[in-house]
Design a binder for these strands. Structure first.
Lengths: 138, 138
DNA sequence: ATAGATATAACTATAATGGTTACAACGGTG
DNA sequence: CACCGTTGTAACCATTATAGTTATATCTAT
């Protein structure tokens, strides 16, 4: 089965580090904690930057949050690294046969149901913020 | 981004057809409505069969439900085609650095949060059953 | 025996992912 | 000003799941 990309968990890891150790969080330092290649971290930090979650100090190194940890939810992070698009977690087979009553309607019917399911998941993510996580890193 | 496989939507389509047109639902007939190759349908029907949702008539052709449509939920179907495993919708990067407080705890902390999110989605799927869908195929 | 089904193995093309190397640009510090 | 450790990206590769295809074996009513 196909899982949601580790970009998301790595992004959470990265933001947690920045929230905790604030400074001295260079890409290499984070990559060492995550245990991956620094380029992976820089790519993800680029997305988080674009989403307005953090600010990076080019040349000098390190990054800092642009919002307080209480204001950054898992949903914000999830959206930032675009592991899924709005209403597109589930893929629906395309071009079903329109001459069949089921084929003609399946797409719309399923779309609304699956959108609800995706939304339920995302709303659960929205309930957790970064500061709730960082208190658990002792 | 990576989406949940169309196996799921095709399985729903397939079961809907069987629920509606009961007989004369051969693999080729279903494949024509779904607009894909019959082998894809047979593979999915094999999974639905293994999950105890339907019964196939080999040789003669066609299939029938083993439970009433009210008793088959989207979650049942979702599980049957194993698009995701229990608690594994989100992939978490592995082997984070244990010498770092964040790296040491991230896995457990995230696992419990993400399990909740996945569960919220699945519980929403469990609320819809096949008969609710088939009434919308007119 | 045959015709029309299902069952399944083997193979292919495609696409996302995760990782790597390479290099340009930035910005303090000596 | 030159250097060094950064960040920012582009380009490339290996791996994997998916979706589809072809081919073949098996089943069952007629």
């Amino acid at each position: 089965m196909k899982q949601i990309s580790t970009r998301f968990s790595i992004a959470v890891h990265t933001l947690s580090l920045i929230a905790v150790s604030s400074d001295d969080c260079t890409g290499d330092f984070i990559a060492d904690s995550v245990n991956t290649n620094p380029v992976i971290i820089r790519r993800i930090m680029g997305m988080l930057k674009k989403a307005g979650l953090l600010e990076v100090r080019p040349g000098v190194g390190g990054a800092s949050l642009l919002k307080s940890p209480e204001k950054i939810t898992l949903l914000d992070i999830y959206r930032a690294v675009n592991v899924t698009e709005e209403n597109k977690l589930f893929r629906i087979h395309d071009d079903p046969n329109v001459r069949c009553p089921v084929g003609r309607n399946i797409e719309l019917v399923l779309q609304s149901e699956l959108k609800e399911a995706q939304s339920a998941m995302e709303q659960r993510l929205a309930q957790t913020n970064l500061s709730q996580l960082t208190t658990r890193f002792k």
